[in-house]
Amino acid sequence: MGTYKLILNGKTLKGETTTEAVDAATAEKVFKQYANDNGVDGEWTYDDATKTFTVTE
């Protein structure tokens, strides 16, 4: 398990959240659902060194 971070750079929603997941693929699924639930759809990037996903609208 590891802690993964999501940085939201949406047009109307900005912020950060974290999740505990077994791997990056699992964290990505959780974060994409979170972003979708909050109406954020954009370009995704992932930094393996910091376990950080970023979505920018």
Rank of each mutant, 00 (worst) to 15 (best):
I7N: 04
T45V: 09
E20Q: 14
T45S: 13
N38P: 01
D37Y: 07
Q33W: 06
T18I: 09
K11P: 10
A24R: 11
K51W: 07
D48L: 10
E43K: 12
T56R: 06
I7T: 04
K11Y: 11
A49C: 07
I7H: 05
T50C: 04
T54D: 03
K51C: 06
L13V: 15
N38G: 04
E43P: 05
Y46M: 02
T45L: 09
E28F: 15
V55L: 10
L13T: 13
G2E: 15
D47P: 00
E28S: 07
G42A: 03
V22G: 12
Y46I: 02
D41Y: 13
K29G: 06
K11N: 13
T3H: 09
Y34H: 04
D37V: 10
T19G: 03
D47E: 07
T50N: 08
D41N: 11
D47N: 10
E16N: 06
D41T: 13
W44K: 00
T56P: 01
N38I: 14
D41W: 14
N9C: 12
Y34M: 05
D47Y: 05
D47I: 05
D48M: 10
Q33S: 07
M1C: 08
K29C: 08
D48F: 10
N9E: 08
Q33T: 08
T3A: 08
F53V: 01
T17Y: 15
Y4P: 00
T3I: 15
F31P: 00
L8M: 13
W44F: 04
G10E: 03
G10P: 03
G39S: 07
T54V: 08
T19A: 08
A49N: 13
T19F: 13
A24Q: 13
K29P: 03
K5D: 02
V40H: 04
A25H: 10
T45M: 12
A27K: 00
T17P: 03
K29S: 10
A35Y: 03
K14Y: 10
G39Q: 08
G10C: 12
T17W: 15
A25V: 09
K11H: 10
D47M: 05
E57A: 07
F31D: 00
F53H: 02
T56I: 08
N9M: 12
A25I: 12
E20T: 12
K29E: 09
L13P: 03
V40L: 12
A25F: 09
N38F: 14
T45D: 09
L13D: 05
A27L: 00
T56W: 10
D47K: 04
G39H: 08
A27Y: 00
T56Y: 08
V30G: 04
G42N: 02
T17C: 11
Y46L: 02
